[in-house]
């Protein structure tokens, strides 16, 4: 099957790409596939995302806990008319497995991929697993970019391989994937976070989703450094937000999740709130409004861990509805 040529000005023409290139403030939401083979568990969540987000991230065994594959879950929601972004970590597959899954994902109609290092298996439910880490996330970004732009694999072979006869035509099949990468403005050292972002752009990243933002002053400093280098004009940066419904969730992230920065005032505010869910939604909406005002932020990525049902309320109250639609858009 040959992929349909993308519309003019598009590299892939995924819904996410169209929303971003049209200058809309994009909205992505995150869905964790189930810890079972239940397709129904995936389908039950579809209505929470439909019409509320432009694309849905399917996590790849996040926190190194075994779950349904992100590609399988992505196909399930794709068939329901939602646009998936598969997350792909370099923790569990070597370059052979990664490239094979990229070809497979694109063949199934998946058009977006987010390239990640992945949480170390020590945090998950198979702590004694052998680490792969054959390539790193920056190299994965470049791998996908090259498969799309040059129809080439890491080894230099074409997709499909080039004919042996020198004059024979090469009917190359590019892998049409819009390439995303993560950026953590709260990891250290701060200055180097911008350098690493630049490396991901140089490697071919089209869009960026950031780590969850609570520490706005630090994120603003990060974005200022991004603008100083003009990086916001080379890549679509989407700010990550993570709604919580308890002070414990905030202190857990502060104390136990590496690379997170949680201001004390937010913890106090949550502790003092009577209706914690309502406070969590309000806090998330405020953060969205604040990041939206920062120059260079082109969208938001909402990651409600095991609380996907909050997405419609957040999107609606943040004034992000209705989501844009395009003529001739595939259902």
């Amino acid at each position: 099957m040959t992929a349909q040529a993308p519309a003019e000005g598009m590299v892939v023409g995924s819904n996410l790409e169209r929303v971003l290139r049209a200058g809309h403030f994009a909205v992505c939401g995150e869905m964790g596939p189930p810890q079972s083979c239940s397709a129904q568990a995936v389908l039950n969540k579809v209505s929470l995302f439909k019409g509320n987000v432009d694309a849905v991230n399917l996590t790849d065994n996040q926190t190194a806990i075994v779950r349904m594959s992100s590609i399988a879950a992505a196909k399930l929601i794709l068939d329901e008319g939602l646009e998936p972004i598969i997350q792909m970590t370099v923790r569990d597959r070597n370059r052979i497995g990664l490239q094979s899954d990229l070809l497979g994902a694109a063949a199934l109609g998946i058009r977006n991929v987010l390239c990640l290092s992945g949480d170390h298996m020590r945090f998950g439910n198979h702590g004694s697993a052998k680490a792969v880490y054959d390539i790193d996330s920056v190299q994965l970004v470049n791998t996908v970019h090259r498969m799309r732009e040059e129809s080439l694999l890491i080894c230099g072979d074409g997709t499909p391989p080039k004919p042996r006869k020198p004059d024979a035509p090469w009917n190359n099949v590019p892998t049409p994937l819009f390439v995303g990468a993560a950026s953590n403005p709260f990891g250290d050292p701060l200055e180097f976070r911008v350098v690493r972002l630049a490396k991901k752009i140089a490697a071919g990243a089209d869009f960026i989703q950031t780590q969850a933002i609570y520490d706005l002053p630090r994120f603003e400093r990060f974005m200022a450094m991004v603008r100083d280098r003009g990086l916001h004009e080379k890549v679509f940066i989407m700010a990550g937000v993570l709604p919580v419904k308890s002070p414990r969730a905030l202190t857990y992230m502060r104390d136990d999740v590496p690379g997170m920065s949680i201001p004390e005032e937010l913890v106090k505010r949550m502790e003092g709130a009577e209706d914690k869910e309502e406070e969590g939604i309000a806090m998330c909406v405020e953060i969205i409004e604040r990041v939206r005002a920062i120059e260079g932020v082109r969208g938001v990525h909402i990651m409600p861990p095991m609380w996907e049902k909050v997405i419609p309320a957040i999107v609606s109250r943040a004034g992000l509805l209705p989501r844009p639609t395009f003529e001739g858009e595939p259902a």
Binding site: S117, G187, D188, P189, R196, P258
Partner: peptide, 21 residues
């Protein structure tokens, strides 16, 4: 590096320490 990263550091580096330990 716990993840053998050649273009590091990953997002888990904080205060000069590794996320794994």
């Amino acid at each position: 590096c716990a993840k053998s990263i050649l273009n590091g550091p990953c997002g888990g580096s904080q205060d000069g320490k590794c996320e794994v330990d």
